Simulated scan of single mutants.
Amino acid sequence: MNIGSKIYIAGHRGMVGSATWSALKAKGYNNLIGRTSAELDLRNQQSVVDFINIEKPNVIIDAAARVGGILANNENPYPFLMENLQIQNNLIDSAHKAGTQKFIFLGSSCIYPKFAPQPLREEYLLTDSLEPTNEWYAIAKIAGVKACQAIRKQYGKDFVSLMPTNLYGSNDNFDLKSSHVLPAMIRKFHEAKENNNASVELWGSGKPMREFLYVDDLAQAVLFAVENVLPEYLYNVGTGKDVTIKELAQTIQTIVGHTGEILWDSSKPDGTPRKLMDSSKLRGVGWEPKINLKSGINKAYNWFLENNNFKD
């Protein structure tokens, strides 16, 4: 790719899309295009077909999805399955038929089986049952991975899938009803601190282990995939390090400056016991994460303080 290549980032205003946009801009790419959901409904097949045929992007980066934490997934199984299938199917098929040179599909570590061996390797895909609390989203993302693999296999096109571990960072979602664990904790601890260091109640036992990747590191992985032809169809993107949810909570509590009590509600589900990804394939071709967890949480908290004009 050259800096004038036309690159369409679907979901360019979201956490991943905006970080990817910034990374490409910083590298000199000057022909980036994006559309808001009001301008282009990615669930509408004809709208997507028309848009891709008119714009004819050289590269499409699919960072658009309906996402959320355990609560949102549990309460909205149908839209988490159907809307994600619609978005990705429309983009992948339109890109294929329009002759798009490169397609980068972004998913999630939840595509892997609940009790897969740790760390998670790409070849563990479809070897066992999924985590029930987010299987709807996972099934949609697996379908996207397989669609890109099928196009790659049948037509030899440069369609690749990147599966990041748990993401956080600037432009994250801090809505307590739909956010993931790390941003939700940031908001809870901050609001408790503001409320005379009131106690903070968190779901589960605190024992599950999770890996977290700052979104700018994922954006660099996407940039790497834009600038290189990767030999495999699927790559994990993570740090290779995980912490317990309890350790995460204590780290966030310290960074936020909350001094109250943490209460664990063990009646609420823990989810998968451990999700650590093996990212050696992507590291083996040249990508490396740069931002450690404490530095990343500091960055995320500072962004939250400057932009916490969210609505519940």
Rank of each mutant, 00 (worst) to 15 (best):
R66H: 07
R152E: 01
K241V: 13
K146Q: 13
I52M: 05
L81A: 14
W203L: 08
N236M: 11
R187N: 02
K102H: 09
N228K: 12
K177S: 14
G28I: 08
L91I: 12
L162E: 01
Q220N: 15
A64N: 06
S280P: 01
M209N: 08
V215R: 08
E306V: 00
L282Q: 02
W264P: 10
Q45A: 12
E131R: 02
I255F: 06
P57S: 10
A219V: 05
L282D: 06
M277W: 01
Q118D: 02
K177E: 13
P77F: 04
K25I: 06
M82W: 09
Q250G: 04
S108G: 11
L263V: 15
T127E: 12
N298F: 01
V226K: 04
S129H: 10
D172N: 13
Q45N: 15
R66W: 07
G296V: 06
L248V: 03
I92D: 03
H96F: 15
P119Q: 11
K299T: 05
S266G: 01
L120M: 09
F224K: 08
E211K: 10
Y8Q: 05
A249V: 03
S280Q: 12
V49N: 09
A98W: 03
D216H: 13
D41P: 05
A219E: 08
P269Y: 08
G144D: 04
A147V: 00
K193S: 06
P132D: 11
E131A: 13
I87P: 10
V145L: 12
K299G: 00
E122A: 13
N302K: 11
F224V: 01
S37C: 01
Y214I: 03
